[in-house]
Design a protein around this nucleic acid. Structure first.
Lengths: 210, 210
DNA sequence: AGTTGTGAATCGATTCACAGCC
DNA sequence: GGCTGTGAATCGATTCACAACT
């Protein structure tokens, strides 16, 4: 039932949203837990349990109405609400992310790009002029940024993180291998390529156990 | 005890490895579950339970010897074993990842870069000449690539994934929002910026519940 | 005295299986 | 007849708390 949605469920919602978008695009009006489950690679029971946290969205004996369900999932994720994003650290990675998040189809509004390197500040990246790190707090407040993408070198990550939080950011996506400390009420997700490869490396250490 | 290491534990090992590297660099010879736990943001009990899956690595009443423990964790993750990586899709993101994984300090050997765009094929990126997608299988076999990074457009991700697996890749890190289907024995981890922002968006939908 | 390693307890997430509804 | 929503059962992961050991 509707209530505190489990973290594991939240992590799967974006996958459901994408599957629903694809169905909508194909003009499909009604779907089933079976179909959605195979599209997203989870079990049908899990899918039904996940959706039930968002309330009752289907019709017994019939299935789910694609557009209605899409709306519920999007609403839960805050997709459509305006949540401006600031990207800090415009190296190769920050550059790539800026381009990706400003390409057509992206539902996020990248409000500003920030970097500390004087050679980068003032250049135009993905249609935005890079601003100086010195003005970070000011930029966050000016744009009302709620989310931030952190793509700085590891050494300054915690410090930048602190300033983002201080300026009012409530969610941070960090591309660093270090655990960032944040106060209650702020959410951090970290994703680091090297760490991910190490996790894969664990499974590929040995020849297939078949 | 030593045995089938839980997936949740494996996902934390890279963090422990990094913390141990930092201690080693600072010349610290001995540490405790308390210290490692605060460095990595987990609880001391969890840290001890995690490490116990790799065997008995500490000394009661004393703590853990940094270098010895580092060795055990690195070994478990296959760090140090030569696991060549192929990067497929040399757009902005693939370019950034190639640079990152070939920078000093990286323990991974990027063996080849592959793309389908004739304007990109033949160019030099991060010191490597980009090869044509047509030769993907050949490149994987030639280099003995065990791991692959998938940074192609969504539309071709599953197809490229199939060919990577067919050619012998055993672990795939995919930067796409779709669930990739792979046979038993192959591991996939997916990380997509838009999905991550949506997950953060869930938590920031509402004003702080303080 | 101090810290690990681990049984036992707890908490959370997944799966089963079916009652409830169209 | 068919598919959802959900109690009950299962499985897995975290935390507690202490015995084992230096």
């Amino acid at each position: 039932m509707t209530g505190p949605v489990p973290a594991a469920t939240v992590a799967r919602l974006p996958g459901y949203l994408r599957a629903l978008d694809e169905l909508a695009e194909r003009g499909v009006e009604t779907t089933s837990s079976e179909e959605l489950a195979t599209m997203t690679g989870v079990g049908p029971a899990q899918l039904r349990r996940d959706l039930s946290w968002l309330g009752s969205n289907g019709v017994r004996g019939v299935g789910y109405e694609v557009l209605r369900l899409r709306g519920r999932v999007a609403e839960a994720l805050g997709v459509g609400a305006d949540q401006p994003v600031v990207i800090v650290g415009i190296g190769h990675l920050g550059h790539a992310l800026a381009g990706y998040l400003r390409s057509e189809g992206s539902t996020y509004r990248v409000a500003a790009l920030v970097d500390a390197d004087p050679d980068v500040v003032g250049t135009t990246v993905a249609g935005l002029v890079v601003e100086h790190d010195r003005h970070l707090a000011e930029v966050v407040r000016r744009e009302g940024a709620v989310l931030a993408v952190l793509a700085t070198p590891v050494g300054v990550a915690q410090e930048v993180c602190d300033r983002l939080v201080e300026a009012g950011v409530r969610g941070i996506l960090a591309f660093t291998p270090v655990a960032l400390r944040v106060p209650q009420g702020v959410t951090v997700r970290s994703s680091d390529v090297a760490s991910e490869l190490q996790i894969l490396g664990f499974h590929t250490r040995l020849p297939p156990p078949r």
